[in-house]
């Protein structure tokens, strides 16, 4: 029997996590669009979702795709300016999101930022991250680790005394 909890509970339980992932990947403004598209798509597909599915991983996977859609839309809407930037950085849109963090995230290569968001905020295993980003689980692990290291530097969090490089 494929009985599931009310979708309202899914939104309540996972809404904050999905928004975190969207914000880390896209910045605050576009994150709202990606969040909305994610939950709308999830609600559409909800009746077919197996009852034993990992709901958070399912949602984070949808969010990843929607974030790409939002980025593409943004690129298409943008006035062409010679070289197309590697990513449409909407990070830096004023809002409640911690500016220092936005800048730090915005400074990461796309793959690292996504790997950090999907694994550390979205709770996906590296094998699942690899399915979304391409490459191997190890490559995703490295991308996330590199991203975290770069964030630490951006935050200027000092190495503890006595800790060698």
């Amino acid at each position: 029997m494929n009985t599931k909890k009310p979708f309202e509970k899914v939104v309540a339980e996972h809404g904050p996590t999905v928004l975190r992932v969207c914000r880390a990947v896209l910045g605050e403004h576009d994150a709202d669009d990606a969040w909305s598209e994610t939950f709308l798509a999830a609600m559409r597909a909800y009746p077919e979702l197996p009852a034993d599915a990992n709901v958070q991983a399912w949602l984070v996977t949808i969010a990843h795709r929607k974030a790409i859609d939002v980025t593409r839309l943004r690129l298409r809407a943008a006035v062409p300016v010679g070289d197309v930037p590697e990513r449409a950085s909407t990070l830096g849109v004023p809002g409640a999101l911690d500016h220092e963090l936005q800048d730090a995230l915005g400074g990461l290569p796309d793959k690292q930022r996504r790997a950090v968001a999907l694994h550390y905020l979205g709770g996906l295993a590296y094998a699942e991250v690899a399915e979304l980003l391409g490459g191997t689980a190890d490559a995703s692990r490295r991308a996330a680790a590199d991203g975290m290291r770069a964030l630490r530097l951006a935050y200027a969090i000092p190495e503890r005394t006595g800790a060698g490089k």
């Binding site: 809404g15 904050p16 975190r20 909305s36 409640a96 220092e100 964030l151």
Partner: peptide, 26 residues
């Protein structure tokens, strides 16, 4: 890493208002 992670989680944390507005939109 723990410090960075804490900043990540805190820095992307949605306010109740944000989630309410998104809920209405949904």
């Amino acid at each position: 890493e723990a410090i960075v992670l804490a900043s990540l989680v805190e820095g992307t944390a949605p306010a109740a208002d944000d989630l309410e507005a998104l809920h209405r939109r949904l």
